[in-house]
């Protein structure tokens, strides 16, 4: 079995038609093995896409993709919803993105997402014992630890996209617009890649996505894919951005198959994602905002 290429859940509030068309194209054309679906950031957004999920999931599955329902990062009153989505209309395997979900899934096969703190083999072993079939590691695990963890269990690593850095009970999109979370008018829909945040010196630094804060830059580990494979990393995750994600997936697939070298892949991704700088600092155990590789 080769390395799985996966697509993380869409983190942003894309209009329903955009999100549906995105998934249809992913289903039909993107060389992905697993697609994580569901609204993981904001409970208020979740109902906006509910009526579209059945056809999206059916199309992804018909195309041979494993579809996994990702649970909310900050589970506030969504537990019933999680149960319903996982078990009712379209029985899907579930990825737990908080410890409460792990508690509910304990004893049966499930996935564990990158928002659960798994930094060492002891924790990984407990989760596997409780039914985890694959664990996507936190975004800041450096390569030395990745190597240890990949040798100890089935792990997934984020290799592309803006880096989710924090989650809060408060909505910063609403705050920026002078609105309350309860009457937010879904202003986050205006920013399909998140709202850019710069320092007072105009240096780009972060992106606001409702209650979530992400990096301004996108992680790109295409140049170390071979290292990750050698370590035994079983799956690599692409985070959806408002770019041609099918083409992004094709680049990573080409590198995994040895059809494209890392430098060429890096430059293709540079062209596909012109608006975001690339970083790899977390992988190297330094500031996440830095680029250690010299492909740029």
């Amino acid at each position: 079995m080769g390395v799985h290429l996966t697509l993380g859940p869409v983190l942003y509030n894309w209009p329903a038609s955009m999100r549906r068309d995105f998934y249809f194209r992913i289903a039909d054309e993107a060389p992905l093995d697993t697609v994580y679906v569901g609204e993981v950031v904001c409970a208020k957004r979740a109902p906006l896409f509910d009526s579209y999920w059945p056809e999206v999931i059916e199309r992804l599955q018909a195309a041979g993709k494993t579809v996994v329902h990702a649970s909310p990062i900050l589970a506030t009153g969504q537990e019933g919803r999680l149960r319903a989505m996982g078990a009712r209309d379209f029985p899907l395997p579930v990825e737990a993105n908080d410890v409460g979900a792990i508690g509910m899934l304990r004893g049966r096969p499930h996935y564990v997402g990158p928002f659960v703190n798994v930094y060492n083999p002891d924790t990984l072993a407990v989760l596997v014992r409780q039914g985890a079939v694959r664990v996507c590691l936190p975004v800041d695990v450096p390569h030395q630890a990745l190597a240890v963890l990949a040798g100890a269990g089935a792990v997934e690593v984020s290799v592309f996209g803006r880096v989710p850095l924090s989650i809060s009970a408060r909505c910063y999109h609403a705050r920026v617009h002078g609105l309350h979370k309860d009457s937010c008018r879904y202003v986050c829909e205006q920013d399909p890649d998140g709202l850019d945040v710069t320092t007072l010196d105009q240096e780009p630094l972060m992106a606001i996505n409702g209650v979530q804060t992400l990096s301004h830059a996108a992680v790109n580990l295409v140049h170390v894919v071979a290292d990750l494979v050698r370590m035994g990393v079983g799956a690599m995750r692409l985070w959806p951005q408002a770019v041609d994600m099918t083409a992004v997936a094709q680049v990573f697939r080409a590198v995994l198959k040895g059809r494209e070298d890392a430098a060429a892949a890096w430059h293709r991704l540079r062209t596909l994602v012109p608006h975001l700088p690339f970083v790899d600092g977390f992988f190297h155990g330094v500031e996440g905002c830095t680029l250690v590789a010299d492909h740029a």
């Binding site: 990062i73 880096v163 850095l165 924090s166 500031e287 996440g288």
Partner: peptide, 16 residues
């Protein structure tokens, strides 16, 4: 802490 504690990478993004 306004961000969920133990689930925040803001500091390491800028300082490592």
């Amino acid at each position: 802490c306004v961000m969920a504690e133990g689930r925040c990478h803001l500091s390491s993004y800028v300082t490592g």
